[in-house]
Design a protein around this nucleic acid. Structure first.
Lengths: 118, 118
DNA sequence: CGGAATCCGCCACGATACTG
DNA sequence: CAGTATCGTGGCGGATTCCG
């Protein structure tokens, strides 16, 4: 994946495409959002199980950024052992069509891509 | 933006979201595609005018990757001075709903984002 | 359990030249 | 006009360790 963060507005108005992309420019953000759309509420450990290849550091990072952007909420339950739940905010919910479009396209055309070059 | 390239499949099947994102993981690819949807056919120099902040190097790069992924076509006219035109392939056209979703969301909600932290 | 802190490699991306 | 070629760098992202 490319680095998308901080794209320092590059285009004349009308190119809000970029702005949107910066939101899940994070390497795993789209995936996080996707799982939240699927499951509604997820704990940290549940994310880890669903995305085994992501390190804790990255997962924490991306979750924090999504939170800072107002797309997800983070609720800490003062228990022992601690429990933290993540869910989509109202703003986050509005991204559903976008993520859905990404997934729909992927399901349909992912296989028709040229073979990767590794 | 994040680096999206080569995300080495991270998720159990059903997460084609990622696969799709790798396509415009490139920092400027979404923008390129967007302009192609707007204008149909574009020359190299026209891209440059529409995206002033992108260096030639990056533009060439991203165009080449999009071509390699089969999303756009590149036509060279054997003239002097040289002319090169880019347009969407049939596969590329199928991305329209996706890019459209990105733009639609951006138009609606870009302003409601938390202020950037720089 | 859900992180925070630290160290570091690597390569995506940019700036600047040069070319057919 | 439409690129290549070369070089340098920031910061993304991984691995590991420690903490309440």
């Amino acid at each position: 994946m490319p680095r998308i963060r901080h794209t320092t507005l590059t285009c004349s108005p009308g190119c809000t495409v970029e702005a949107t992309l910066e939101l899940f420019g994070g390497k795993w953000k789209a995936l996080i959002l996707y799982h939240l759309f699927e499951d509604g509420v997820l704990r940290f450990s549940e994310f880890r199980r669903r995305m085994p290849n992501v390190t804790q550091r990255m997962l924490t990072n991306q979750l924090r950024e999504l939170e800072a952007d107002g797309l997800i909420s983070r609720t800490v339950f003062p228990e022992v052992p601690p429990r933290v739940e993540y869910e989509l905010t109202d703003l986050g919910q509005t991204l559903k069509p976008v993520i859905h479009a990404l997934k729909t396209w992927g399901d349909k055309y992912a296989h028709s891509l040229k073979p990767e070059k590794e």
